[in-house]
């Protein structure tokens, strides 16, 4: 029993080391005075100040965030309506076909999605830039939202929808007053998922971005190709800390909302 525990702990420890070592290595060298990734010669914050003074980089960060926000917002709306559409399809066969069509988009490689979008935009003569990237991001985010929203739709008690109709609610009122409030958690997680996917995306963006517009991922890639600069390490460290804070924030928020629910329940009893 204790032997087993020891081994499983050791295994977990090893896995996490494997996962986090490159990141910590990267962060460590963001403080390197030496300017290369070879030897750690001394501590400095110089690279961080370069990042903060690099106005082009700051602008790209803002652009990337804006893109993520817009694309996840729009895809949340479209994806939610799509999920509701799939939910309401009466024929089980058709429903399965639609669902699988959705999942295929989800698992198909970014490279294929990116290149097909590039092809499409070129054929119709669409100018590559912010809008083309936005459209592509919306497109690959919709299946994610659909996938996140569907489970919370399935959880809705069908007789609750009957009850709403029975009480005089028309189709739109049922959607607005009953369905949406009940699937809000699903929509929110779909939104956050789409947001992170958009922030994350390199391949699709790389294909459809034009000369004028770029995102952080593409920018880091092109800088890394040009040669190692520890400025990128500093930027990555900042991003890592930001996502760490995001995860922590999300964790405490979920604990808080769970506690609020318990308090409510306590009052009711």
């Amino acid at each position: 029993m204790t032997e087993k525990m020891k081994w499983s702990k050791l295994y977990l420890f090893f896995v996490f080391i494997l996962l986090y070592t490159p990141i910590f290595y990267l962060i460590l060298f963001s403080f390197n005075e030496g300017g290369t990734m070879n030897h750690f010669t001394g501590f400095t914050l110089e690279h961080y100040s370069t990042v903060l003074q690099d106005s082009r980089l700051i602008q790209i960060v803002v652009q990337t965030l804006l893109l993520a926000l817009l694309s996840s917002l729009i895809s949340s709306i479209i994806g939610t309506l799509g999920a509701i559409g799939i939910y309401y399809v009466k024929n089980v066969r058709t429903q399965e076909v639609l669902l699988n069509a959705n999942n295929i988009l989800l698992v198909s490689p970014d490279v294929i999605i990116g290149s097909s979008f590039l092809l499409l935009f070129t054929i119709v003569g669409f100018q590559l830039g912010f809008v083309s990237v936005l459209l592509a991001h919306i497109a690959f985010s919709i299946p994610i939202v659909v996938l996140m929203v569907l489970p919370s739709l399935e959880e809705i008690n069908p007789s609750m929808l009957k009850a709403a109709e029975d009480l005089g609610a028309n189709g739109f009122q049922i959607l607005w007053h009953v369905i949406l409030p009940n699937i809000l958690p699903g929509i929110l997680s779909g939104f956050f998922m789409a947001f992170t996917y958009s922030l994350d995306d390199f391949a699709v963006t790389f294909f459809v971005t034009g000369n004028g517009f770029t995102t952080l991922a593409v920018e880091i890639y092109s800088r890394a190709r040009r040669g190692v600069s520890l400025e990128i390490n500093a930027l990555s460290a900042l991003l890592f800390i930001a996502s760490l804070l995001l995860v922590l924030g999300y964790y405490y928020l979920s604990i808080y909302s769970r506690r609020m629910k318990k308090v409510k329940r306590g009052v009711a009893e």
Binding site: L167, A169, N170
Partner: peptide, 18 residues
């Protein structure tokens, strides 16, 4: 259904939890 002057009490109550 939403235009009929008839109302139903469901077996599983079907209340709105939100």
């Amino acid at each position: 259904a939403h235009k009929r002057k008839v109302n139903t009490v469901f077996q599983d109550y079907a209340l709105f939890p939100h």
